[in-house]
């Protein structure tokens, strides 16, 4: 008797669990990738009308997950080819932003100024002390301590690393002769001594915050919330520009073609007055009509990408630059191909 009673109770409980599951008017979407865009997607997902779960894994893992077909969408700061999904996917630029160089030097009371050759030398370890002449020449009147520089880098494959090394290679080819690579240890001509690895942007920022005399690179959004200072960078016009959503938008606004497979070709050496050249686009990876996961949630992904591209206004305050002008038109044309 008692056994039968408990069986009935269990059956009733199971029934309750299944019946209370909400009817799916909003789709469940899963995505992973770029930690650069983590805050942007998290801020926008509530207003997208769908139940979006986004995991900040780094662009490389995000591309792999989409390639394996285990996520509905991906986000990546670099548009690299996906092997299993050949031709059946789209890279759509949804938001841009500056890569900020943040540092932890208690003695520096004013914003530090850097240029591409100096940054390249710091990141490859050939400038290894804060009081080096090259940094001093850019920052007259600032006394920096004779402490070793601790470089904090992204340990996994990262779109931020890929874009930054591309920038350094194009703007300062003599100091940074190696071509772009998403993995810092492969990208740098030589590893700086005592460098520390960090799993994603958020970890990198907190590592810089807790390590005195360290320097690192991350999206502006995470740099802002950490309240760590970030350097202004010399652009090709010879101006020192602080990384702001506006300055990044000024530079990124000069490019207007978006290829569905290779993304936007950014010319980092372009002279744009008031522009911050070390900027990047984050791409949403979405299935193309007849793609990897036919029929699965594609309409919802389409609505989400459209939302990220045009309707979500939370970006600028968080440190992201919205897509505008003719690139927006090009990106919208790509959204129409999602299916």
């Amino acid at each position: 008797m008692r056994l039968r009673h408990s069986l009935i109770t269990i059956a009733a409980a199971m029934g309750l669990i299944f019946s209370s599951t909400t009817a799916a008017s909003a789709a469940d979407l899963t995505g992973s990738g770029s930690s650069f865009a983590f805050k942007y997607i998290t801020a926008c997902k509530a207003s997208s009308g769908h139940n979006v779960t986004y995991s900040s894994t780094g662009s490389g893992t995000g591309r792999n997950n989409f390639n394996d077909g285990v996520t509905d969408f991906g986000a990546s700061d670099a548009a690299s080819a996906l092997s299993k999904a050949t031709g059946k996917y789209l890279y759509i630029p949804v938001v841009g932003g500056p890569i900020s160089v943040l540092y932890n030097v208690p003695e520096a009371k004013t914003q530090l100024k850097l240029d591409a050759p100096t940054l390249a030398k710091i990141l490859r370890g050939s400038i290894d002390r804060w009081n080096d002449g090259a940094i001093g020449a850019l920052n007259p009147g600032v006394t920096l301590p004779k402490k070793p520089i601790i470089v904090v880098y992204r340990s996994a494959s990262s779109g931020t690393t890929e874009n930054m090394t591309d920038y350094l290679n194009k703007v300062a080819p003599k100091e940074w002769p190696k071509v772009k690579n998403g993995t810092f240890t492969s990208a740098t001509p030589s590893m700086p001594r005592g460098a520390k690895g960090a799993a994603n942007s958020q970890v990198l920022v907190s590592t810089v915050r807790s390590t005195k005399y360290s320097i690192g690179y991350a999206d502006l959004s995470d740099a802002i919330s950490s309240k760590m200072p970030f350097a202004s960078m010399k652009n090709e016009n010879g101006e020192f520009i602080s990384p702001t959503p506006e300055a990044a938008a000024k530079f990124l606004g000069d490019f207007d073609k978006a290829d569905p497979l290779t993304g936007v070709a950014i010319d980092f050496t372009k002279k744009v007055a008031g522009g911050y050249n070390m900027s990047l686009f984050t791409y949403a990876i979405a299935p193309k009509a007849g793609g990897v996961k036919p029929g699965t949630n594609a309409p919802a992904v389409k609505e989400l990408v459209d939302h990220l591209l045009t309707k979500c206004k939370d970006g600028t305050a968080l440190g992201y630059s919205p897509i505008s002008g003719s690139l927006l038109t090009a990106a919208k044309a790509l959204v129409d191909q999602i299916g």
Partner: peptide, 25 residues
């Protein structure tokens, strides 16, 4: 969102929630 059906849809858990919220920073 709340999902009580373990057979469909992704599900949140407390350790995952702690990890993600810490990551947002």
């Amino acid at each position: 969102t709340t999902n009580l059906n373990p057979f469909s849809g992704t599900m949140a858990t407390l350790p995952w929630y702690i990890f993600t919220q810490m990551t947002l920073g």
